[in-house]
């Protein structure tokens, strides 16, 4: 816009709102990511500061790959995504809105 050249004005008009919206939008994803890396003992301990991972582990990912049918689920997801996209593409091309 026209105004907004001083560093303080730029902070108030640009960085504070953008930062606020970014933190709001991304916090749950950050939370998901660090939760996936925490060992159970850390997840269920209320005294440890929860915002960072103290003892990162890949155990949950290994369990996911070895103890569940995760690869089958991934394949199913891909299959559904591709087939349903193809069907809606074909039907969508057939019916152009006037």
């Amino acid at each position: 816009m026209v105004t907004g050249h001083g560093p303080i004005e730029r902070l108030v008009r640009l960085w504070l709102p953008v930062g606020f919206f970014l933190v709001l939008a991304l916090f749950p994803f950050y939370w998901m990511a660090i939760t996936s890396l925490k060992p159970n003992a850390e997840l269920y301990n209320r005294r440890i500061m929860p915002l960072v991972v103290h003892n990162p582990t890949l155990k949950h990912y290994i369990d996911l790959l070895t103890e569940t049918s995760f690869l089958v689920w991934t394949w199913n997801t891909m299959l559904v995504a591709v087939v349903s996209t193809a069907i809606s593409l074909v039907l969508g091309v057939c019916s152009p809105t006037p």
Partner: peptide, 30 residues
Amino acid sequence: AMNQQFPMKNLVRALMLLPFIVPTVLSTVA
């Protein structure tokens, strides 16, 4: 806020879309 000029504008715009793109069930579990 996003209509202003700032570095990495396109990256920030893309990140901002994440809550809308991710399946609702997934983000709700989070």
